[in-house]
Amino acid sequence: MLHYFIDAFAMIGMSYFMGFLFYGFYRQFNARVQRRWGPSIFQNFFDNMKFLFKTETIIHGPMFFFGPMIIFAGAVTTVLFVPYLKDSIWLQGFSQSGNMILIVYLLVVGPLGNALAVGSSGNPFGVMGVTRGLTRLMGLEVPFLLGLALVMVQHETASVHAIMAAQPDFAHWNLVTNPLAFLVMILPFMASQHASPFDVVGAPVEVYAGPRVEFSGRLLGILMTQNMMMTVAKLVLIADLFLGGATTIWELIAKTFALFLLTAAISTSFPRLRTEQTVDFFWKIPLGLGVISVIATIWFPWS
Protein backbone atom coordinates (compact mmCIF):
# COMPACT_ATOMS: atom_id res chain seq x y z
CA MET A 1 0.00 0.00 0.00
CA LEU A 2 2.75 2.40 1.04
CA HIS A 3 4.65 1.36 -2.06
CA TYR A 4 1.68 2.37 -4.21
CA PHE A 5 1.47 5.76 -2.53
CA ILE A 6 5.14 6.58 -2.91
CA ASP A 7 5.10 5.30 -6.45
CA ALA A 8 2.07 7.38 -7.38
CA PHE A 9 3.54 10.50 -5.85
CA ALA A 10 6.82 9.91 -7.63
CA MET A 11 5.04 9.53 -10.96
CA ILE A 12 2.92 12.62 -10.46
CA GLY A 13 5.91 14.67 -9.31
CA MET A 14 8.07 13.45 -12.13
CA SER A 15 5.42 14.22 -14.74
CA TYR A 16 5.03 17.69 -13.34
CA PHE A 17 8.77 18.38 -13.28
CA MET A 18 9.35 17.02 -16.74
CA GLY A 19 6.26 18.84 -17.94
CA PHE A 20 7.29 22.32 -16.96
CA LEU A 21 10.91 21.78 -17.96
CA PHE A 22 9.90 20.49 -21.37
CA TYR A 23 7.53 23.38 -21.91
CA GLY A 24 10.18 25.80 -20.67
CA PHE A 25 12.56 24.26 -23.14
CA TYR A 26 9.94 24.59 -25.85
CA ARG A 27 9.59 28.31 -25.19
CA GLN A 28 13.36 28.74 -25.19
CA PHE A 29 13.68 26.74 -28.38
CA ASN A 30 10.94 28.73 -30.04
CA ALA A 31 12.60 31.99 -28.96
CA ARG A 32 15.98 30.96 -30.31
CA VAL A 33 14.46 29.99 -33.61
CA GLN A 34 12.96 33.47 -33.70
CA ARG A 35 16.33 34.96 -32.66
CA ARG A 36 15.21 36.08 -29.23
CA TRP A 37 16.54 35.23 -25.80
CA GLY A 38 13.27 33.83 -24.61
CA PRO A 39 12.13 33.28 -21.04
CA SER A 40 13.76 31.23 -18.34
CA ILE A 41 13.44 27.49 -18.65
CA PHE A 42 11.38 27.58 -15.45
CA GLN A 43 8.96 30.12 -16.88
CA ASN A 44 6.08 27.64 -17.05
CA PHE A 45 6.59 26.79 -13.41
CA PHE A 46 6.43 30.48 -12.51
CA ASP A 47 3.30 31.00 -14.59
CA ASN A 48 1.66 27.99 -13.03
CA MET A 49 2.54 29.03 -9.48
CA LYS A 50 1.30 32.55 -10.13
CA PHE A 51 -2.06 31.22 -11.26
CA LEU A 52 -2.30 28.78 -8.36
CA PHE A 53 -1.76 31.69 -5.95
CA LYS A 54 -4.12 34.21 -7.49
CA THR A 55 -6.31 35.69 -4.78
CA GLU A 56 -9.51 35.73 -6.78
CA THR A 57 -11.23 33.14 -8.96
CA ILE A 58 -14.60 33.51 -10.56
CA ILE A 59 -16.85 30.49 -11.06
CA HIS A 60 -20.07 30.11 -12.97
CA GLY A 61 -21.89 27.47 -10.96
CA PRO A 62 -20.87 24.09 -9.51
CA MET A 63 -20.32 22.31 -12.82
CA PHE A 64 -17.94 25.05 -13.86
CA PHE A 65 -15.91 24.42 -10.73
CA PHE A 66 -15.86 20.64 -11.10
CA GLY A 67 -14.77 20.67 -14.75
CA PRO A 68 -11.11 21.46 -14.01
CA MET A 69 -11.20 18.94 -11.17
CA ILE A 70 -12.42 16.26 -13.58
CA ILE A 71 -9.78 17.10 -16.16
CA PHE A 72 -7.09 17.03 -13.47
CA ALA A 73 -8.31 13.69 -12.15
CA GLY A 74 -8.35 12.40 -15.74
CA ALA A 75 -4.78 13.57 -16.32
CA VAL A 76 -3.45 12.02 -13.12
CA THR A 77 -5.31 8.79 -13.84
CA THR A 78 -3.66 8.71 -17.25
CA VAL A 79 -0.26 9.29 -15.69
CA LEU A 80 -0.84 6.47 -13.21
CA PHE A 81 -1.90 4.01 -15.89
CA VAL A 82 1.18 4.51 -18.10
CA PRO A 83 4.20 2.44 -17.02
CA TYR A 84 7.17 4.79 -16.87
CA LEU A 85 9.91 2.21 -16.46
CA LYS A 86 10.54 -1.24 -17.85
CA ASP A 87 11.58 -4.17 -15.63
CA SER A 88 11.22 -2.16 -12.48
CA ILE A 89 8.84 -2.13 -9.56
CA TRP A 90 9.04 1.65 -9.45
CA LEU A 91 7.15 4.21 -11.48
CA GLN A 92 4.52 1.67 -12.47
CA GLY A 93 1.45 3.19 -10.87
CA PHE A 94 -1.61 1.09 -11.67
CA SER A 95 -0.44 0.24 -15.16
CA GLN A 96 -0.81 -3.48 -14.49
CA SER A 97 -4.57 -3.05 -14.37
CA GLY A 98 -4.78 -1.08 -17.60
CA ASN A 99 -3.95 -1.38 -21.26
CA MET A 100 -3.21 0.72 -24.30
CA ILE A 101 -6.80 1.28 -25.44
CA LEU A 102 -7.79 2.28 -21.92
CA ILE A 103 -4.99 4.85 -21.83
CA VAL A 104 -6.01 6.30 -25.19
CA TYR A 105 -9.55 6.69 -23.91
CA LEU A 106 -8.40 8.10 -20.58
CA LEU A 107 -6.65 10.85 -22.53
CA VAL A 108 -10.07 12.04 -23.67
CA VAL A 109 -12.03 11.72 -20.41
CA GLY A 110 -10.64 14.87 -18.85
CA PRO A 111 -11.17 17.22 -21.80
CA LEU A 112 -14.74 15.97 -22.13
CA GLY A 113 -15.37 16.64 -18.43
CA ASN A 114 -13.93 20.09 -18.86
CA ALA A 115 -16.16 20.63 -21.88
CA LEU A 116 -19.12 20.42 -19.50
CA ALA A 117 -17.60 23.21 -17.43
CA VAL A 118 -17.03 25.30 -20.53
CA GLY A 119 -20.65 24.75 -21.51
CA SER A 120 -21.96 25.70 -18.10
CA SER A 121 -20.02 28.97 -18.17
CA GLY A 122 -22.42 30.06 -20.88
CA ASN A 123 -19.71 31.64 -23.01
CA PRO A 124 -20.40 30.81 -26.66
CA PHE A 125 -16.75 31.28 -27.59
CA GLY A 126 -15.76 28.55 -25.17
CA VAL A 127 -18.30 26.15 -26.61
CA MET A 128 -17.10 27.00 -30.09
CA GLY A 129 -13.62 26.06 -28.94
CA VAL A 130 -14.89 22.78 -27.51
CA THR A 131 -16.60 21.93 -30.78
CA ARG A 132 -13.38 22.66 -32.60
CA GLY A 133 -11.53 20.44 -30.17
CA LEU A 134 -13.96 17.57 -30.66
CA THR A 135 -13.75 18.01 -34.43
CA ARG A 136 -9.98 17.87 -34.33
CA LEU A 137 -10.19 14.83 -32.06
CA MET A 138 -12.36 13.15 -34.66
CA GLY A 139 -9.65 13.78 -37.22
CA LEU A 140 -6.65 12.72 -35.20
CA GLU A 141 -8.05 9.75 -33.30
CA VAL A 142 -8.55 7.60 -36.42
CA PRO A 143 -4.94 7.52 -37.65
CA PHE A 144 -3.60 7.64 -34.10
CA LEU A 145 -5.44 4.51 -33.00
CA LEU A 146 -4.83 2.86 -36.36
CA GLY A 147 -1.09 3.30 -35.85
CA LEU A 148 -1.36 1.84 -32.37
CA ALA A 149 -3.56 -0.99 -33.69
CA LEU A 150 -0.83 -1.93 -36.16
CA VAL A 151 1.49 -2.37 -33.17
CA MET A 152 -1.17 -4.34 -31.30
CA VAL A 153 -1.58 -6.68 -34.26
CA GLN A 154 2.19 -7.03 -34.55
CA HIS A 155 2.53 -8.10 -30.91
CA GLU A 156 -0.94 -9.61 -30.51
CA THR A 157 -1.52 -7.80 -27.26
CA ALA A 158 -2.88 -4.50 -26.00
CA SER A 159 -0.75 -4.52 -22.88
CA VAL A 160 1.92 -1.83 -22.78
CA HIS A 161 4.08 -4.01 -20.54
CA ALA A 162 4.09 -6.87 -23.00
CA ILE A 163 4.89 -4.58 -25.92
CA MET A 164 7.76 -3.01 -23.96
CA ALA A 165 9.09 -6.43 -23.06
CA ALA A 166 9.08 -7.42 -26.73
CA GLN A 167 11.57 -4.64 -27.56
CA PRO A 168 14.75 -5.59 -25.73
CA ASP A 169 17.24 -3.73 -27.94
CA PHE A 170 17.42 -1.15 -30.70
CA ALA A 171 16.94 -3.72 -33.45
CA HIS A 172 13.64 -4.73 -31.89
CA TRP A 173 12.26 -1.28 -31.29
CA ASN A 174 8.91 -0.87 -32.96
CA LEU A 175 10.33 2.24 -34.57
CA VAL A 176 12.64 -0.11 -36.46
CA THR A 177 10.45 -3.18 -36.88
CA ASN A 178 7.27 -1.29 -37.72
CA PRO A 179 8.28 2.16 -39.03
CA LEU A 180 5.03 2.56 -40.98
CA ALA A 181 3.00 2.42 -37.77
CA PHE A 182 5.22 5.11 -36.28
CA LEU A 183 4.78 7.34 -39.31
CA VAL A 184 1.02 6.83 -39.25
CA MET A 185 0.60 7.86 -35.63
CA ILE A 186 3.28 10.53 -35.15
CA LEU A 187 1.44 13.50 -36.68
CA PRO A 188 -1.86 12.76 -34.92
CA PHE A 189 0.17 12.32 -31.76
CA MET A 190 1.53 15.83 -32.18
CA ALA A 191 -1.98 17.14 -32.66
CA SER A 192 -3.06 15.41 -29.47
CA GLN A 193 -0.26 17.38 -27.76
CA HIS A 194 -1.79 20.64 -29.09
CA ALA A 195 1.40 21.25 -31.05
CA SER A 196 1.56 24.07 -33.51
CA PRO A 197 0.26 23.18 -36.94
CA PHE A 198 -2.77 21.65 -35.25
CA ASP A 199 -3.25 24.01 -32.32
CA VAL A 200 -6.27 25.92 -33.56
CA VAL A 201 -8.33 24.82 -30.57
CA GLY A 202 -6.72 26.65 -27.70
CA ALA A 203 -4.51 29.15 -29.45
CA PRO A 204 -4.75 32.57 -27.78
CA VAL A 205 -5.94 34.51 -30.80
CA GLU A 206 -8.42 31.94 -32.08
CA VAL A 207 -12.03 32.49 -31.02
CA TYR A 208 -10.90 34.31 -27.92
CA ALA A 209 -8.73 31.58 -26.34
CA GLY A 210 -11.10 28.70 -27.11
CA PRO A 211 -12.26 26.40 -24.32
CA ARG A 212 -10.28 28.25 -21.64
CA VAL A 213 -11.98 31.57 -22.24
CA GLU A 214 -13.80 31.78 -18.91
CA PHE A 215 -11.26 30.09 -16.66
CA SER A 216 -9.29 32.34 -14.40
CA GLY A 217 -7.05 32.34 -11.38
CA ARG A 218 -6.55 29.03 -9.64
CA LEU A 219 -8.81 27.07 -11.95
CA LEU A 220 -6.61 28.14 -14.85
CA GLY A 221 -3.62 27.04 -12.79
CA ILE A 222 -5.16 23.58 -12.45
CA LEU A 223 -5.77 23.42 -16.19
CA MET A 224 -2.14 24.37 -16.84
CA THR A 225 -0.83 21.77 -14.40
CA GLN A 226 -2.82 18.94 -15.90
CA ASN A 227 -1.79 19.94 -19.42
CA MET A 228 1.89 19.64 -18.54
CA MET A 229 1.40 16.28 -16.83
CA MET A 230 -0.73 14.93 -19.64
CA THR A 231 1.92 15.89 -22.20
CA VAL A 232 4.52 13.87 -20.35
CA ALA A 233 2.18 10.89 -20.01
CA LYS A 234 1.60 10.86 -23.76
CA LEU A 235 5.32 11.15 -24.50
CA VAL A 236 6.08 8.28 -22.16
CA LEU A 237 3.36 6.16 -23.76
CA ILE A 238 4.85 6.65 -27.21
CA ALA A 239 8.36 6.06 -25.91
CA ASP A 240 7.12 2.82 -24.33
CA LEU A 241 5.42 1.66 -27.50
CA PHE A 242 7.92 2.65 -30.16
CA LEU A 243 11.26 3.38 -28.51
CA GLY A 244 11.42 0.27 -26.38
CA GLY A 245 10.57 1.89 -23.06
CA ALA A 246 13.23 2.83 -20.55
CA THR A 247 15.00 1.02 -17.76
CA THR A 248 16.34 4.10 -15.99
CA ILE A 249 14.93 7.53 -15.41
CA TRP A 250 17.70 9.11 -17.49
CA GLU A 251 16.90 6.89 -20.41
CA LEU A 252 13.25 7.80 -20.04
CA ILE A 253 14.04 11.49 -20.04
CA ALA A 254 16.30 11.13 -23.06
CA LYS A 255 13.71 9.24 -25.07
CA THR A 256 10.77 11.45 -24.21
CA PHE A 257 12.92 14.49 -24.84
CA ALA A 258 13.83 13.20 -28.27
CA LEU A 259 10.15 12.81 -29.09
CA PHE A 260 9.41 16.23 -27.65
CA LEU A 261 12.20 17.78 -29.69
CA LEU A 262 10.68 16.30 -32.83
CA THR A 263 7.32 17.80 -31.93
CA ALA A 264 8.89 21.16 -31.09
CA ALA A 265 10.88 21.25 -34.32
CA ILE A 266 7.80 20.59 -36.41
CA SER A 267 5.62 23.01 -34.52
CA THR A 268 8.07 25.90 -34.82
CA SER A 269 8.28 25.39 -38.56
CA PHE A 270 4.70 25.14 -39.74
CA PRO A 271 1.85 27.64 -39.66
CA ARG A 272 -1.45 26.84 -38.06
CA LEU A 273 -4.15 24.96 -39.96
CA ARG A 274 -7.85 25.64 -39.68
CA THR A 275 -9.96 22.99 -37.97
CA GLU A 276 -11.41 21.52 -41.12
CA GLN A 277 -8.01 21.60 -42.80
CA THR A 278 -6.62 19.67 -39.85
CA VAL A 279 -9.31 17.02 -40.08
CA ASP A 280 -9.00 16.78 -43.83
CA PHE A 281 -5.22 16.48 -43.54
CA PHE A 282 -5.49 13.65 -41.04
CA TRP A 283 -8.01 11.81 -43.12
CA LYS A 284 -5.87 12.11 -46.23
CA ILE A 285 -2.18 11.86 -45.38
CA PRO A 286 -1.79 9.85 -42.15
CA LEU A 287 -4.91 7.79 -42.72
CA GLY A 288 -3.95 7.14 -46.33
CA LEU A 289 -0.56 6.01 -45.12
CA GLY A 290 -2.37 3.86 -42.56
CA VAL A 291 -4.48 2.17 -45.22
CA ILE A 292 -1.36 1.51 -47.28
CA SER A 293 0.43 0.00 -44.33
CA VAL A 294 -2.59 -2.16 -43.42
CA ILE A 295 -2.65 -3.49 -46.98
CA ALA A 296 1.10 -3.92 -47.08
CA THR A 297 1.64 -5.52 -43.70
CA ILE A 298 -1.57 -7.41 -43.05
CA TRP A 299 -3.44 -8.22 -46.21
CA PHE A 300 -0.58 -9.64 -48.21
CA PRO A 301 0.75 -13.12 -47.60
CA TRP A 302 4.34 -12.05 -47.05
CA SER A 303 3.42 -10.37 -43.80
Binding site: A31, G38, P39, F46, P204, A209, V213, E214
Partner: peptide, 12 residues
Protein backbone atom coordinates in the same frame (compact mmCIF):
# COMPACT_ATOMS: atom_id res chain seq x y z
CA UNK B 1 8.97 37.27 -22.95
CA UNK B 2 12.40 37.12 -21.33
CA UNK B 3 10.83 39.02 -18.41
CA UNK B 4 7.96 36.57 -18.28
CA UNK B 5 5.66 39.08 -19.94
CA UNK B 6 3.34 37.53 -22.45
CA UNK B 7 0.02 38.42 -24.03
CA UNK B 8 -3.26 37.07 -22.71
CA UNK B 9 -6.29 36.65 -24.88
CA UNK B 10 -9.04 37.30 -22.38
CA UNK B 11 -9.31 39.51 -19.30
CA UNK B 12 -9.94 36.39 -17.20
Amino acid sequence: ERFGIIGAATPR
